[in-house]
């Protein structure tokens, strides 16, 4: 994927995602969680915690972090890196908002299997 010509897919309206919440996007290689922070920034992460596979999309969103609902691992949504004493990382994909629409990088389509 050439970063200079990043392509975007419109996946829906920003208002379809609750503030401090997430919605899922299905792909051929599993689900991607698209988060909306309180400040309306959006993030796209693989919807699988590297610990025991918990759905991160169901976690509590605080600031730009999300806490996994199963065993409370905390991830920085900018980098996908686990915080604190836990070691691990989830895949992240470029996402942005343009005129109220959420755009996801096409990189999400050809990521390697998680």
């Amino acid at each position: 994927m050439n970063m200079m010509t990043e392509n975007w897919i419109d996946i829906g309206a920003l208002d379809d995602i609750p503030r401090q919440g997430a919605r899922l996007v299905k792909t051929a290689r599993g689900c991607v969680a698209v988060f909306r922070a309180a400040d309306d920034h959006v993030f796209a992460l693989d919807d699988r915690c590297p610990h025991k596979g918990g759905p991160l999309s169901e976690g509590i969103v605080h600031g730009h972090s999300v806490t996994c609902p199963l065993h409370s691992w905390v991830f920085d949504m900018n980098t996908g890196v686990a915080q604190g004493a836990d070691v691990g990382q989830v895949g992240t994909y470029a996402a942005r908002v343009d005129q109220g629409r959420v755009l996801l990088s096409t990189a999400v389509l050809d990521r390697s299997a998680a």
Binding site: I9, G12, D16, V25, A28
Partner: peptide, 15 residues
């Protein structure tokens, strides 16, 4: 509606 995925890209091909 809110309980389902907001988009289904399973049929979208990678470039």
């Amino acid at each position: 509606r809110k309980w389902a995925p907001m988009a289904d890209l399973t049929l979208e091909a990678a470039e």
